[in-house]
Design a protein around this nucleic acid. Structure first.
Lengths: 183, 183
DNA sequence: CATGGACATGTCCCTAGGGACATATCTGAG
DNA sequence: CTCAGATATGTCCCTAGGGACATGTCCATG
């Protein structure tokens, strides 16, 4: 149930509407913590009912901006400091890699190339983002400083995966010619 | 729905029972693709009903070993080659890092140290595994070669995260002393 | 003034996954 | 013989998440 705390955390930076939050989730968090807008609106209503956030203002087009309450701030901090980190990873690409031996060599090479490209592009995106931050484009608040740390993780993670996909292309399908194997 | 194909893939290496598969999932795939035994048994029954696997033998303690069928092999290969890779990542530690600015410096340092240790240990585990494979301990089949590739991803991923957690400890909470900020 | 498109918020249904609980079977130690 | 503990397979319920679909509101353009 991290969406809840993700929303609270984002709202701790300042008031925002569900629409704003949905945009931030797809733009910044898209590849790290995807969230669909229906879930976001639903969760915001729950949070409001529990008094962790409140409606700050109503704008045009039925827009409702939410503000985090003191109780909400307490709750995020509790989550950050007292709740164990959930290290669950669910990486389909790695699951698939267990079964590479079932693929033709050609198919596998094409697959790995596509994977490498995909990861490399994502890494580059994050790198650009980091460069803009480092140029001061987003200011020097502690919030953007944290974002910089998150972005760095994205860079390192996706670079590692890109490198891996490239490295994997050089791995022979089975133990290379050894005089006494298969013979 | 990758559990389905994960099971098919593992069964493609040879017959196994739900219990065997559950063990393999927790041992090898635990940190990459967790799966609980109830889901595994349920999925195996579905797969059997669809003719993608069949009961190979019944052993002591109600043990049922399953064997993949030709249709099952076709299905894994179809998945591997024709179905788009799902790149979804859901990394709570990175989501949390967006909110590091809400934590005390001390708490954050402790947190990052614990994270670094956690990732370093996992990376080491995978490294050991890789070393044993490279020593030939698991033979030289194409299946173990694929496993070697998966393990390499684990090493690189967790090393990257460990490095990141260490690097993050050196990042100042906000822009360091600049003459005209906050003044 | 009408209408396409962006803004904004939702409902609904279905599947995947977490986890507590239940149960049967066999082995080995005492 | 008994009983703890490992092996082995399940049921059940609840929540999280994906995604299709619905609706309301405002603005710019012709």
């Amino acid at each position: 149930m991290s969406l809840r705390h993700g929303l609270l955390g984002l709202l701790a930076e300042g008031p925002a509407s569900g629409y704003d939050l949905a945009r931030r989730f797809t733009e910044v968090l898209g590849s790290i913590w995807p969230a669909q807008h229906p879930k976001i609106y639903a969760e915001l209503n729950k949070l409001a009912a529990e008094g962790l956030v409140e409606v700050e203002s109503e704008g045009p087009r039925r827009r409702k901006a939410y503000r985090i309450t003191d109780a909400g701030v307490v709750e995020v901090k509790r989550w950050l400091t007292e709740v164990d980190v959930d290290h669950t990873m669910r990486l389909q690409p790695l699951l698939r890699s267990l079964f590479f031996w079932m693929m033709d060599t050609d198919e596998l090479q094409r697959h790995l190339e596509a994977e490498a490209t995909y990861y490399r592009e994502l890494a580059d995106q994050y790198r650009d983002y980091a460069a803009r931050k480092d140029r001061g484009e987003f200011g020097y608040s502690e919030q953007t400083q944290s974002m910089r740390v998150t972005i760095e993780a994205g860079i390192r993670l996706y670079s590692a995966l890109a490198d891996w996909a490239e490295w994997a292309q050089t791995v022979p399908p089975a133990k290379p010619t050894s005089p006494h194997t298969n013979g």
